[in-house]
Structure formats: structure tokens, C-alpha cells
């Protein structure tokens, strides 16, 4: 199998492919969820339903890929939701701006980039990434609320012409999300910088001592996360047609749950970015089923919380050691009684 894959994808290393193979169970579960939903619910097979599934899958996928890179690096980004909210607000500003829609879109990307770089600057300065991005989410949300103003923000049609475009039956942004996913997977697995991300996530101290550019990579990973969060915000705009500073607040738990379900270990360095696709699919399909069956949408919130804990539980039971670098709690394990024999 590896030789066939090797000839098809000559540049893809065996480790990247092996990490996909080890996630086959997850792909199976995702496929099962889709098949069961399609068989049990005729409404699920409806093209409209498929379209709305893609529309809700796209932002989760984009934001979770960014989160996956940060987690792979051994960090965490709690500001993804606020950044996505900021993106929606910035898009709505385009009628006011002199440059119109192009300038607004450029601002969106620049906003995500700036948030990411500020996060990285804090982390490099020695602040716990969890608290840094938490504080940052407060700052970004405040800025977004300020820009949003009091009057309801309307999204101009020109923006929709760009963002809402579709390639055949598939929305453009869904294609973008898929391309981003594969590109990020190859980037983390194949390139020099990507390998530094993994090495730094696996063992920060050793990576630093080996002379890897860990500090520079910090900036890269948080910038990627910020950038993808703002693109995710654009995908949310296409789905909801509104600009709202708080619209992304569920993206934090969505992205973290997705990354954990994808089997990326929260300590960093272990996992495959490609697995984010089946994980996001599971979350999106369950959400879609909850909507289609008319179940209370609050169950979706509860489901995500339970899923998050379950994912951590399952993977930790599967023998993967979970000790978080920014958390440092050692399990209290008894040592042999050598002290006693010495006395």
C-alpha cells in the first residue's frame, strides 16, 4: 500500500501517511455517522440539506485547522471565536470604507494576522498561551463590539458575490477550506517549518537546544490560526448573512472539540491535521441531524461539551499520555521505598 501511495504521492512521507492510517477508525466513525444519518433521515439526502451541511462545515473546518496547528505546536488559541466575530464585523464595514469590498476583505485578513502575531508576541514573552489568548479574546471582542456600533450591520451584496460564489454545486469557500486542510496537512508533515512545529510541540526544550527556530515558529503558528479564524468568520458571514461580534463564540469549543476528536494530543506533536476533516464532519452532521429532526438546538451545545470530555477520555484511555506543558501537573505516583531502606 505504501509503495502504491508512494508512486502516487512521491513527496508525501510515510509518517504522514501512517498518521492517516492510524486515524482509520475515526474515518470509519465519520462515514458511519453520515451513512446512518442519510439512511434514517430522508431530509438529510435533500440537496438543500447537503448545501447547508457544507455551509456549517466550512467555518468549523477552517477554524479547527488553525487550532490544530496551534495544538500541534503545544499551544492553544482561545481567541479564534472573537477573531471570527471581528471578521464578520469588518466585512460589514465595507460600505463605509473608501476601498469598498476589496479593502474590507484585506482588513479581515490583516485583522486575523495581527491578532495572531500579538498572541505569539505574548507567548514568546513568557505568558501562558492559554491566558494570553483568553485575554486577547476579550480585547478582540471589545474591539469588534465597538466597530459594530449600535445599528444592525448589513452585509453588502458585492461581498456576497465574492464569498458566496460556488464552483459547480460546491460553495467556493468549502473548496477553499478543503484546499487549506490538505495544504496545512502537507505543510505540517512535509516542510521544514512544519516539522519544527511538530518537534517543538513534542518537546519544546529539546527542539530549542537543537537550534530549531522555535520562537519564529511561534509567530507562524499563531498567525496561521488568526488568519484561518478570520477566513472562518467570512464563512460564517456567508451562512448567517449577519455581522455580529459574538457570532463566533461557539467556535472556541467547536474547534477545540474537533481537534481533540481528531486525535491531536493536547500536549502537541502527535496527530494528523488531515483527521480534522472526519472530526469536523461528525460534529457538523450531528448538528444537522439535530436541526432536521427538530430537536432542541440546545442539545447541540450539551453534545459538544460531552464530546470534548469523551474525546480526551477515549484518547487518554487509549494509552496516549496527557500531561499538558502549560499545566504541569504530575500524577502522584509512588516510588519504590529506596529512601526507607537508606535510613
Amino acid at each position: 500500500m505504501s509503495s502504491a501511495a508512494g508512486s502516487l504521492l512521491p513527496r508525501v512521507s510515510t509518517t504522514s501517511l501512517r498518521s492517516v492510517g492510524s486515524a482509520r477508525f475515526l474515518w470509519l466513525v465519520a462515514a458511519l455517522v453520515v451513512v446512518v444519518a442519510a439512511v434514517a433521515l430522508p431530509a438529510f439526502r435533500n440537496p438543500v440539506s447537503v448545501g447547508s451541511l457544507l455551509a456549517s462545515l466550512t467555518p468549523i473546518l477552517l477554524i479547527a485547522v488553525g487550532q490544530a496547528v496551534v495544538v500541534m505546536y503545544g499551544g492553544i488559541d482561545l481567541s479564534v471565536g472573537a477573531t471570527a466575530g471581528l471578521a464578520t464585523v469588518l466585512v460589514a464595514l465595507s460600505p463605509v470604507l473608501p476601498g469598498g469590498a476589496p479593502l474590507a476583505l484585506a482588513l479581515v485578513l490583516a485583522g486575523g494576522l495581527v491578532v495572531g502575531l500579538l498572541n505569539a508576541a505574548g507567548v514568546v514573552a513568557g505568558i501562558n498561551p492559554l491566558l494570553m489568548t483568553f485575554a486577547m479574546s476579550g480585547v478582540v471582542q471589545g474591539v469588534a463590539l465597538l466597530l459594530q456600533g449600535t445599528e444592525g450591520a448589513r452585509i453588502p451584496g458585492a461581498v456576497f458575490d465574492v464569498l458566496g460564489a460556488s464552483v459547480g454545486p460546491v460553495p467556493l469557500l468549502a473548496v477553499v477550506a478543503l484546499v487549506v486542510l490538505v495544504a496545512t496537512w502537507l505543510w505540517v508533515g512535509q516542510t521544514r517549518t512544519g516539522r519544527v512545529v511538530q518537534a517543538a510541540g513534542y518537546d519544546r526544550r529539546t527542539a530549542t537546544r537543537l537550534g530549531f527556530p522555535v520562537r519564529r515558529t511561534t509567530f507562524v503558528v499563531y498567525a496561521v490560526s488568526g488568519l484561518l479564524s478570520s477566513v472562518g468568520g467570512l464563512a460564517i458571514v456567508v451562512r448567517t448573512y449577519t455581522a455580529d461580534a459574538l457570532v463566533g463564540s461557539s467556535a472556541v469549543i467547536d474547534s477545540i472539540a474537533t481537534v481533540l476528536v481528531a486525535g491531536i494530543v493536547i500536549t502537541g506533536g502527535i496527530g494528523s491535521v488531515l483527521s480534522v476533516l472526519p472530526a469536523a464532519l461528525i460534529i457538523a452532521v450531528v448538528g444537522q441531524v439535530i436541526t432536521l429532526t427538530g430537536t432542541d438546538s440546545y442539545y447541540q451545545t450539551i453534545f459538544k461539551g460531552v464530546l470534548l470530555v469523551a474525546a480526551v477520555g477515549v484518547y487518554s484511555l487509549a494509552g496516549k499520555k496527557i500531561t499538558v506543558p502549560w499545566r504541569l501537573r504530575q500524577p502522584a505516583v509512588a516510588r519504590p521505598a529506596d529512601e526507607r531502606s537508606a535510613s
Partner: peptide
């Protein structure tokens, strides 16, 4: 119980709990 007896990081455990409690409140 979740954080003392498993290796779930507190941030994730309490974030999940926050989500669940929020969902139950709304429900």
C-alpha cells in the same frame, strides 16, 4: 471528580462543563 481522577486538563474539562451547563440552562 473529572479533574482529580482523570488526566483531562482543567481548561478543557471546565470549558466542556461550561458548555454543558450553558446548554442545560437554555434547555
Amino acid at each position: 471528580v473529572m479533574l482529580a481522577f482523570t488526566r483531562i486538563p482543567p481548561l478543557l474539562g471546565t470549558l466542556a462543563m461550561a458548555t454543558v451547563v450553558q446548554g442545560v440552562n437554555a434547555l
